[in-house]
Structure formats: structure tokens, C-alpha cells
Design a protein around this nucleic acid. Structure first.
Lengths: 229, 229
DNA sequence: CAAAATAAATGTAAAATAAACACTTATATA
DNA sequence: TATATAAGTGTTTATTTTACATTTATTTTG
């Protein structure tokens, strides 16, 4: 893609995806290493261009699918970035979306073939263009969203322990939470199913596994229920 | 603008502005009556197309200025609307912005020349395209924003009474507030200057006028201070 | 096989915040 | 001078949030 080939008055429409996952007590983001110019070799968010007959939502889902092989993922439009020189090659407006996915479920091969890698939030390198800004905005939004709607469950395996859930919230909100207060609050939401099954990997005693009760959640969500953490 | 003249693969980039004002105990929105096709005669938000060398923020400010004659107004990007058929004439993606302005300060002539009119939120007509959806989203965002940062002051005259301020918040949040609790809360924020001057139009006793203390507000805002109403 | 080590599970009291509530005051007008 | 109108002001109660420590189940180790 060279400057000479681009009509002067063309504005390109891109979509960039901030893909969050949770693993190993850490909130992570999926980045790709560019194998094309400009900025070849540098890390960036996964992105692409809008097609003629798709919405921005469609484009975001398509891009996410291309990288992870995953469908039906929670995504949310974040912000349209439009600084005139944000992309040095051509005028490009990028609408960013963030997604939260279960890190265990994605397609490893696809990720490898895109030179993609998960980065802990504290270890994110300098990204191309305004992608660091996009990421910052996404983190802020995710935090706010998580303390209102409990979307965080998307980031966990189907069955999880209370400790895992707490670690997830601590990672998202970037602060330590009191174990008892956390459990009481979660219990009061009444959207978890406690299973008669224990995870024995974390301790000798073992800890009960829980599932997210999608049905109860939907019921409550209709009535604007929300959580404050 | 006729379909025949538009290249098939062209995507237009528009910006639409939801302009809020406050008057007469009512939260209002400024709408224009279209004097061109399609949907001539119907009401819509004020909008325009992005220019080659401006950001979306620039475009939103320019559009607001064209209609109201006002500069340096609080504006916030809302959402990019991208349904493929949202505009029947041509594929157009519109990024919406909302603005809040002091209804006394705008330029009446400009507004008249655009066939524009202020509508109370409860009396907004059917708008073209997806503009009602844009407005709904803007109201929700304004409510959330107002209960976090006290941006509402932009909607009042420079000097205002506590009653006016309360009415404004009641209009934005669409619920009645207790007079004493409201005043205590506002006082505790410590961002108002009480003047030695009374407004005598509202009662025989008269009520003290207040001003917003921009300096104190800025100081507090730096430290993530916020308000919950 | 007893002791130690590890993480899980659980409830209550104190503090902070939010909500409910009613009377007095100043002034213009009747 | 009596009345009507909106302004101004604090306290009590209810709710929510925060702080905090001990017991339990099981495996590992000595």
C-alpha cells in the first residue's frame, strides 16, 4: 500500500479490535505483530477495513473471527478515532471495538498464523498509531462496564471457583477485594449456580465450582439490575 | 442529491449533533426541519459531512457553530451508526455527538434561518432515519455523565439559583429530588460560589444567585472526583 | 499415623452514606 | 396588618459499605 496509489480525497474506514482475555490471574490483550509496512515488525491491535455491505458491528465480528475463530462474542463499540494524520499512509478513520473472550476457547493455530500473542496489560509494548490510546480507552470502558453489568463471566471457563471469579474482578478493576465482601455481593446478585463439584487443583480442601446462570441474569437484566463493585 | 450520481462503492461520512438546552424547567433538543429531499419537511438532527482535513470532533464543532453561532461548547462523541440502509439515498455512516448549550446565548437568527426549533424531550416528533435512536442514546449518556461529572452547569445562565439548578437536574434525570438533600449534596461538592446578589423574579423573598467555580472544579476533576445523584 | 500446612468457607459489628422529613423567614401584595 | 409565596435550613432513620478472624477439610510431611 503506497501513498501514490491512493486518491487524495479518499477516507478509509477501518475497524480495530481490542480483544481481552483472562488467564493466570492476569487480564490480557491479544496483539498482532505486523508483517507488512508501515511499521512492519511492530505490535498492533487486530484490524481491518469496512466492507461495502456490512455494518461496523459486522466488521468487528468478522475481524475477531478471522483471528480467533470465535463467533457470538460480547463486543461493544468504543470510539471512532479520526485524527487526520493518525495513519501516515492515508487518511483513515478507525472505529474501535472491544471484545472479551474465554482465552481457552480460541483457535491457537489461527492466532499463530497471524503472529498474534497475548500480553498482560502491564506488559503491553508501544503499539502503532493511536492503538495504545484505544487500548487505554477500552480498559476504562471495560472497568466501568464490569462494575455495572457482570459481563466478566465471559472471560472465565464455564465452571469456575469463587476465587477465580474474584481474581478476575481484581484484574479488571486493578484493585484487591475483600474475599467475604466479594462473595456476599456476588451471592446477593443471585446469578450463580453452585455445583456439587469441586476443583481440587487449587487446594487440598478443594473449592466448589460455580456456573453463571444465564437465564436468571437475563431476567434481571431486563429490569436494569446492576452491580456495584 | 440523486442516487444516479453516487458511485456504488462510496461510503459517506456524516456527523449528526444532538444539541441539548435547558429552558423553562424543561430539557430541550434543537431540531431542524429539512428543506431538501429526501424526507423534506420532516424533522431531523443537525448534521453535515466530514471534510477532508478535519477530525470528527472538528466537524461536530463546525456543525454546531453553523447552527448556533457558538464556539467552545461541551461536546462528546456518542456512537457511530452504520446500518447499511440507514440513509436511503446512499451508504452513509454517521458519527453522532451531543452538545449541551446555554439556551439564552445562541444566535436566534441563525436558528431561524435553518428552520430550527427547540423541542421539549417529551414532545420530540418522529425524526428521519435513525435520529430518534441517536437522541435516545444521547439522553441516556447525558444522564449517566451528569451523575458523574457535573457538566450540567453548561446549561444554565452564568448566575443561577439553587432552585434552577435543582430543576435542571430533575429535568436531566427525569425524577424529583428532595430540596434539602440536593442542596446538601451540591454544597458538599464545593464547586459553587454563592453571590451576594438575589434573583427577585421567582419569589417575594428572593433567592441567592450562585456561580459555578470553574477553578475549583478543575482542581477536583484532576483527582477523579465525582458526584452521585 | 500424628502434626503441619494450605486454601476454603463463613458472619457480624462499625462506619459511612443516603433518604425522609417540617418548620421558620423574608418580603410583596391584598 | 394579614396573607400568600417561595427560600432557607438540620436532624433522625434506614441502608449500604467496609473492616475484620476463626474454623474446616484435606493432603503432605515428619
Amino acid at each position: 500500500m503506497y501513498k501514490g496509489y491512493i486518491p487524495e480525497d479518499k477516507v478509509f474506514l477501518a475497524v480495530d479490535c481490542i480483544i481481552f482475555g483472562f488467564d493466570d490471574e492476569d487480564l490480557k490483550v491479544l496483539l498482532i505483530q505486523r508483517d507488512f509496512e508501515p511499521e512492519k515488525g511492530k505490535w498492533s491491535l487486530m484490524g481491518g477495513f469496512l466492507k461495502q455491505n456490512e455494518t461496523l458491528d459486522d466488521a468487528a465480528s468478522r475481524i475477531l473471527y478471522r483471528l480467533t475463530g470465535m463467533h457470538d462474542i460480547y463486543m461493544e463499540q468504543l470510539y471512532a478515532f479520526s485524527e487526520v494524520d493518525r495513519d501516515p499512509v492515508a487518511r483513515t478513520i478507525s472505529t474501535s471495538y472491544y471484545a472479551i473472550i474465554n482465552i481457552e476457547k480460541h483457535n491457537e493455530k489461527l492466532i499463530e498464523s497471524h503472529n498474534a500473542k497475548w500480553f498482560s496489560l502491564s506488559k503491553v509494548p508501544n503499539l502503532i498509531f493511536d492503538h495504545n490510546e484505544m487500548l487505554d480507552k477500552a480498559i476504562k470502558r471495560l472497568r466501568r462496564r464490569t462494575s455495572i453489568n457482570p459481563i466478566g463471566f465471559e472471560l472465565l471457563p464455564e465452571k469456575f471457583t469463587m476465587r477465580q471469579l474474584q481474581k478476575l474482578y481484581e484484574a479488571i478493576l486493578d484493585k484487591e477485594l475483600d474475599k467475604r465482601n466479594f462473595i456476599n455481593k456476588i451471592r446477593s446478585m443471585d446469578i450463580l449456580i453452585k455445583l456439587n463439584e469441586k476443583d481440587m487443583t487449587s487446594s487440598t480442601k478443594g473449592s466448589y465450582l460455580h456456573m453463571f446462570d444465564q437465564e436468571k441474569y437475563n431476567q434481571k437484566n431486563d429490569n436494569d439490575f446492576y452491580l456495584k463493585l
